[in-house]
Amino acid sequence: MLPQSRSLAVRAVEACGAYTLLRLRRDGADAGVPGQFFMLRAAPAPADAYLSRPISAAWADDDELAFLLDVRGPGTRALTAGGAVEVLGPLGHGFELAPGPALLVGGGIGAAILPWLVRLLPEARVLLGFRTDAHAVCAALVHPDATVVVEPELVTEPLARLLPGFEGTVYACGPDAMLGAVAALAAEHGVACQLAMEAAMACGFGACHGCAVKIDGRWKRLCVEGPVLEASRAVA
């Protein structure tokens, strides 16, 4: 029922503005679908990062599995230190691609999940919001023609302009506040919306009950129900 954990070699670690791109040799590993995630841990792991970290793949090529990282603490820092990475996944439920037009919305490191989705939805409009210009550098990885806004402008502003009359699906990933605003706008315009959410995770496979998020109005495990959810389930 659970995929095998694999040790994958690091092919390259590259700065991408304020973020870091981690490229692993895929070595035949199952990549799953966009929106699913992997539990990653540097091998060997440093003492201050005992647990693995949940990270979504930015893309999967025949020979490469790539992750875009916001290096925040010891776990993500160790992942960028070279060597090998212990990879468990793919885990959880990813995006369900719907027929018809697509609007992709990313906020901050939430953009990390979108390059792969863009490959599957090449006609999609892409809207990205970032804190600073340094963070916005990664927009080039997502889509050459993405609409990019930097604070104080919020990504929901161009979204609000595009939604009237839009008949398709919104796929969004970003901080909770942004996802809440995106879901509210989509609901207002009667547009289908899928959200890729985040929570602190110790295991990623339903074992710890650590990843509680309000889903269908109750605390439920995001790693089991999500991390991609129909917006109506997350904001109920």
Binding site: A49, A200, V213
Partner: peptide, 8 residues
């Protein structure tokens, strides 16, 4: 309990 529920 409400999250966060875990801390390393």
């Amino acid at each position: 309990n409400p999250p966060p529920r875990i801390a390393e």
